[in-house]
Design a protein around this nucleic acid. Structure first.
Lengths: 249, 249
DNA sequence: TTACTTTGTGTCATTTTAACACTTTCAAAT
DNA sequence: ATTTGAAAGTGTTAAAATGACACAAAGTAA
């Protein structure tokens, strides 16, 4: 047992493997990603949150840990996107300098395992935070460059989210418990990056019967107040048991 | 430049990162996977082909290399499944022994990046090979255990293939250039693991117009000879340009 | 009271899907 | 030469899903 611990160098950072997280949030208008601001004396200012893994933790744990360390959030929807790591992914001098500044060890060849997670934006408001690293929500459509190969990772994560939301009811992780059908509608349009007919969307969701209307409406809005709904996990379970496969988007 | 080489330890094996390949083949009846036979003095006899990566190669290259080293095949359809690597994935003593026997270095914590590839079975017939490692085609349905966490990797690869074939015409990589619609039909049934109505399947494929009949039929079969077809890459391109999204399976 | 904004609702034509059975064509056996 | 066996190939119909489309209702703010 001692021997195994020694072999695996538990409790130690693995210098060759990191995780990066694409943390998605939805502001009822568009999709956002939580990015680290590295300051102005490096190449691209913004980067995905990430870190080396410990030899004692598995990859999912490492992903959760990075998310937790940045936001304090636990039990968040998290899914692996894949592994990235061209030998030349650290492609400019300032990126290398920055890496050295945040890591004890010299930079070896690193492959990174990317995750995406879905959080309710209200659960993490950067300005209210007192963590050392400064993070900020950035609209995905406004991101044109990121550190290292993070733009590739972001694009892969967007693609994965797009595919996944066609088959699984994961979008609700981005919404508060109570939401309107219009919010859900805009969420799907944001992720799928295409317009969906309002009436057809509502018909489809309500036919599937995975949302339940509650005895409560929006208040204080300067227009007709919207009916609020909650996601119905039990009904969704029933659906899957009858061979439900995808949402047909 | 010298300095960068030194930092990355090019030409050297990275002790912490490996690739494993799930190599699929189709025998016109069912789906098969090419597995390494490790002999009888270890735990599970069979394992996925895999190896540590070189620091000088990227992950896709490492996947191609493993495939090439085993089969001699190049330019094969290859796609990443994801990264695997619980700290305890080397879960029994004989697996550890085996690893030591094939690797120079002592076994560290290894994370592995899994790939799946699609090959024409006729292009690799194990018995005709003279490579040191013995490999064999095994029906996916008959695989109940594998070395390490390879059964998890296999299942993930099967799932990925299942999803992918619903949206991309990758199945043709498993068939010879000339094939019959019945062969294509059985291929889809094998991968999707569900029966598909013959007439509806043929109608769908022919409506999409991605296969072209050639002036040639099956010969020497003891029944009505089947029309042969080839995959039509150009027609498929046109389809995608008109917003084609999936095959609807 | 008016203006403004967003919610919420139904129909119809078209397309897609699922279910289903019999004839044809060849090789092999008699 | 005839029979047998085995897979290929083909069309219709009913049901379901999709896509296109417009206007009244309900609230706040001015």
């Amino acid at each position: 047992m001692e021997k195994v611990d020694k072999i695996f160098q538990n409790k130690e950072l693995n210098p060759n493997v990191s995780v990066d997280c694409v943390i998605f949030g939805f502001d009822f208008e568009k999709l956002n990603v939580l990015l680290i601001d590295r300051g102005s004396n490096v190449g691209p200012r913004l980067a995905l949150p990430g870190n080396l893994i410990y030899n004692s933790e598995n990859l999912n744990q490492a992903g959760s840990r990075v998310l937790d360390e940045l936001t304090g959030l636990k039990n968040i929807y998290l899914e692996q996107v894949g592994a990235f790591g061209d030998p030349d992914r650290i492609n400019n001098k300032s990126d290398q300098e920055w890496l050295k500044s945040i890591r004890a060890e010299p930079t070896a060849r690193v492959i990174t395992v990317a995750y995406f997670s879905l959080v309710k934006m209200a659960d993490y408001l950067p300005q209210a935070s007192s963590f050392a690293k400064t993070a900020e929500w950035v609209s995905v459509n406004e991101i044109t460059e990121l550190a290292f190969d993070h733009i590739d990772i972001l694009n892969a994560a967007k693609g994965k989210l797009k595919e996944k939301i066609k088959t699984q009811p994961i979008g609700f992780n981005l919404l508060p418990e109570k939401f309107t059908l219009s919010q859900l509608h805009r969420l799907y349009e944001s992720i799928l990056e295409k317009p969906l007919d309002k009436r057809n969307f509502r018909r489809k969701i309500q036919k599937l019967d995975i949302v339940t209307s509650i005895k409560e409406k929006q208040r204080g809005v300067p227009h007709k107040p919207s009916q609020l709904f909650i996601f119905n996990q039990e009904k969704y379970q029933l659906l899957t048991e009858t061979g439900f496969d995808n949402f047909g988007f």
